[in-house]
Design a protein around this nucleic acid. Structure first.
Lengths: 333, 333
DNA sequence: ACAATAAATGTAAACGTTTACATTTTAGGA
DNA sequence: TCCTAAAATGTAAACGTTTACATTTATTGT
């Protein structure tokens, strides 16, 4: 049998309003009454009906986390960071993957935000469309976006400093390592991380007075096979690059595999660098040179900003937190 | 303005009951009425109040996923598998980590199960206590456990064949590789995966007429540093083992690091094998010999069984699905 | 002792659905 | 046409809380 406040009220000989107040620590209820109610509640092993409470309070105590996909460490770490902060703030975390489909994202967005199925939302995306921006701004709940900046009022953004990371790394390849022929395996063009990394690569060249051979920029899909394919393409050119900057570590791994099958050695025949500093990268031989992103920070920061926004009475203007990246040296260049 | 069925009813000049039925595809409502209601709902951009619906239906359309921690690929893959199946079944996934604390698990369990905050539960654990078993059996909602078998009525279990995997791998080391002095770095004794892997190790020795030197079995914590520490300990023995079977890949990686600092080479000086076949293991040099677990299967199977149980009217007896493991050859032995 | 005020409690509505049951409308058969 | 059964719709309660407002009870200062 599941007890309700009604039964407790009966037993304590008070009204349900008093029971409700006693159990919610309303200061208006007399200490002795409260003690009585609480003891009966305990005796009955009473638990409030969450669904009823959510309904009347118009909140669910749940924060939604929407990601394009759940793969690799990046997403895990974000989930972990969000969950831990949410948990200590008394919230649960509803995780949804849109399986990289925009339609699915819009659908999930609608399901989550309409009528407060979730009280707040963290959206991880690098590919914002106008429809999504509209959905976000109309959602009526606090939102934090990780990745691309939607430039919306009252929406916080966690941005990863892709540009700076790429710029530093490429500059290092030019200055310290003396490479002048550096290729780039870019990520998907609709992915803002990829775009920024590419810009860092381009700007570093320009600032050092180098021009890039357009054939040295090839697109990839952030996956190992696409990295390997890009490597093969680059190594088939008449004008071969001396070094390759892959827009993420997975594609850099693809280069390692490509080099292996070509019988080329890294970095003697061709240097390789990546981005992300995923767990594997330190176990590659030679250790991959890459750019590290403090991913755990990202999730935690996002959740912290979100809780702050949810708990605040007043409106808070948009905040932008840039998570800086750091170069990780390796022997692959 | 958020419209409710009341406004739709008014506009369509029908009762709210008819609106509700029309929107829920009740066959009793006339086609023309339904069309009218649906068109008004669309015009109003109506969305049902999920919280109200959950309340009256006494279900939330959410399944809970409780894990001891959110780290490494195993958990990611499980979340991914669960989420994808849940999503296609019309459910959302609430993820909670208990941060490896039993108290927290009990608390989360209570929060999730009491009064249907979640409609079904997947619990990932290798360390079941009586209190937790009690909590599960009293939960009143469908439950699927991944890991240890709680032996409860109407609770499905997804078990990973740790014993067989360890047995096969150790047998292979003995038969094919000819090792007779094989050490074992065990996992935490309260972890059932660890216990089973150790048993496979022991039984393989017994079945091949070998006795194990008790000094060759040391405990670890499933982490890289604990693997390295164990490696140092084993290599400081007078009677050194020829091969080391670590209960998971992370500890095997610790062995690689230990070997590196001792100036020992794998497998010439000492062979190393692991368990799990995590992503990194194929990038270690030499490639780690290990036991692969089809993790994606685990999450998907769990969610599938759970949905099946939730959608079934009749009671279903406990089901046990054993996910078989497979040996992965590598040059580390 | 008596207002006046503060503290404690009670009453009842409200939240937006779903649904059992009652009623009305429609269709079909004689 | 009328009767009956089936189809469609309506009425109203129910779900378990919270909370605005009303009422009662206790406390304080004079």
């Amino acid at each position: 049998m599941d007890y309700t406040i009604k039964e407790i009220a009966e037993r304590a000989d008070v009204s349900i309003a008093t029971v409700s107040r006693a159990l919610n620590n309303d200061k208006r209820v007399k200490a002795s009454t409260k003690a009585l109610v609480v003891s009966i509640a305990r005796e009955f092993n009473y638990r409030p009906n969450i669904l009823a409470r959510n309904f009347v309070r118009r909140k669910s105590n749940i924060i939604g986390l929407i990601m394009p996909d759940i793969v690799d460490e990046f997403f895990t770490e974000v989930i972990k960071g969000v969950e831990s902060v949410a948990h200590s703030g008394g919230y649960f975390t509803l995780v949804a993957s849109t399986h990289s489909r925009e339609g699915s994202l819009l659908e999930t967005l609608a399901a989550f935000t309409h009528r407060r199925m979730v009280d707040g939302l963290i959206l991880l995306t690098t590919n914002l469309s106008p429809a999504i921006k509209k959905g976000l701004s109309e959602s009526g709940i606090p939102v934090v976006v990780i990745g691309e900046n939607p430039e919306l009022k009252e929406t916080d953004v966690i941005a990863i400093d892709n540009y700076q990371g790429a710029y530093s790394l490429v500059s290092h390849l030019i200055n310290k390592k003396g490479y002048t022929k550096i290729a780039h395996i870019a990520g998907p063009p609709e992915n803002s991380d990829a775009v920024q990394r590419k810009q860092g690569y381009l700007q570093a060249h320009q600032d050092h007075g180098l021009t890039v051979n357009p054939h040295w920029i090839v697109d990839g899909a952030f996956t190992i096979p696409s990295g390997e394919a890009a490597f093969r393409r680059l190594m088939s050119l008449i004008q071969k690059p001396e070094a390759i900057f892959a827009a993420n570590d997975m594609m850099a791994i693809g280069c390692y595999e490509g080099a292996d099958s070509f019988g080329l050695s890294i970095p003697e025949d061709v240097a390789v660098a990546g981005f992300d500093d995923i767990f594997v990268s330190r176990f590659l031989s030679p250790r991959l040179m890459t750019v590290g992103v403090p991913i755990a920070e990202v999730g935690k920061t996002a959740a912290t900003l979100l809780l702050d926004r949810m708990n605040s009475e007043s409106h808070i203007a948009s905040r932008l937190v840039t998570i800086s990246t750091g170069m990780v040296l390796g022997q692959s260049s």
